[in-house]
Design a protein around this nucleic acid. Structure first.
Lengths: 255, 255
DNA sequence: CGTAAAGTTGAATTCTTTCAAACACGGTGG
DNA sequence: CCACCGTGTTTGAAAGAATTCAACTTTACG
């Protein structure tokens, strides 16, 4: 494994954490808690590592800007991308809070990351925050479970269709004015490692989908050409994810 | 889908929740909390459903005895098993606490399940419990992520090898005197749906593994014949799971 | 302008599925 | 006690999907 840290972290000014993504309540509490402090931020260029599998300098983070992939490297050197992290999402949490990282966090695009210090301590003074974290964890679980179901039984076509719709839906939660063309910093090999395919097969399948007028990827953008066809392919897989709507966190009572 | 509830629930007496599995601290708090109450328990025979995808009678549970599979049915009628639940594990939690269940919980063997009422309320009076739940959720996540990595890139051989070792390790946490032969209530079709294969291919692969003296399944028992070979095949995948050791929860400070 | 990274294409191979059929086993009812 | 039936297991042959290997083209970027 020849992964190297491409770039070191930079510090930024006070952090007005955005209240969107998986953890608006969490970021709200944090920004209140730290409004008088300088909350540490990290700016990383694209294709650099926030942390590597095995690293000990453990922290928790909220992604403020950019895209991040969480992945695990297996013994034979192959990479499995576990999930994508979009602005507002939480990352870095693991059972052994101070143990070595069990995954690698790589930026896909220029990113700004907010460091969450002493998560456990904050949870003790803010009991409601801990339960929010449980909620966030459950949402991440649903996403991962849905990828599992998708990869497990789906053809390359279906896997890619699912990925496209899943990312589209998650971005839609962050920007209701989103068109059918979304930013897409993954290269074909990233898609392959996310979906359990080879980049060659991803390439062929993408070509076919584009030729059929369903979906196209070019210049770091993904464009949904035929939403209905995509939804017919994998829509039902997405249903469990709808229970992770941000509105549900902000107003959990309103079923 | 013609799934029917095979058997209705029965009630049992006071629940001395066992302090093992993923949530010993959780069950400890619960049993203290309810030591004077009659905590509701459900007894279910093998191959019956604790809840079905879509059910509204939502609760949280701790599995006390038996084996349970969590699965999701996709539109085309195929079943994806999300994960197995062993005694002491938590189940039933989801983002929409009172929404319809997003998965189905089926018993594989005769099971006893402890009902956890009003989880959110308990968390408010026991702040430390909420953070324990976060911990439990993170452990479940690692298990699911590891299955994802296994299914995504592994051959049928590797997938089965991984499943065997994973179950073996989790049972070992519950019974240190476990031999190399473990109870195994899954039929070949369950294995198939857990690993994203067809039962026919599972059959062929199991035959081959048995013929090679690596692993055998018969009479509802799985026997590890050559641990070293299995570990060489998939051992490195298991490493992240070691951070979920129960000891870590009971003494989280002791790194 | 030159190099490295990413994308593209073809042909052969491997793994897995599909379809079809047979077998083994345990339980039920006659 | 035996015939029957359903569930789960086993096996074969053909078809299909994805990978591998190898080479080539295009794009991005200093």
């Amino acid at each position: 494994m020849d992964i190297q840290r491409k770039n070191s972290a930079g510090l930024c000014s006070t952090c007005p954490i955005r209240h969107y993504g998986l953890c608006p309540a969490l970021s709200k509490i944090l920004s209140e808690q730290f409004e008088t402090h300088d909350l540490r931020q990290i700016s990383l260029p694209a294709k650099s590592y926030l942390y590597l599998q095995g690293d000990l300098n453990n922290s928790n983070y909220i992604l403020k800007e950019g895209w991040v992939l969480l992945s695990r490297i297996t013994q034979d050197g192959s990479r499995q991308v576990l999930r994508s992290v979009l602005p507002g999402d939480f990352l870095g949490f693991q059972p052994e809070l101070n143990g070595p990282h069990i995954d690698t966090a790589m930026t896909l695009s220029d990113s700004v990351i907010c460091v969450v210090p002493e998560l456990e301590a904050i949870c003790q003074t803010h009991p409601e925050l801990a339960f929010r974290l449980v909620w966030v964890g459950a949402c991440e679980m649903i996403l991962t479970e849905t990828y599992l179901a998708n990869i497990s039984k789906g053809s390359a076509r279906k896997r890619i269709a699912f990925m496209a719709l899943e990312l589209y839906q998650r971005l839609l939660l962050r920007d209701m004015n989103l068109g059918y063309s979304i930013p897409f910093p993954l290269v074909q090999e990233d898609i392959a490692d996310l979906l359990g395919l080879t980049s060659i097969h991803v390439n062929r399948t993408l070509k076919k989908l584009a030729a059929e007028g369903i979906l196209k990827v070019e210049k770091h953008r993904l464009t949904i050409l035929d939403y209905d066809v995509l939804y017919a392919m994998v829509g039902s897989l997405l249903e469990p994810l709808e229970t992770c709507d941000i509105a549900k966190e902000l107003h959990p009572a309103s079923k």
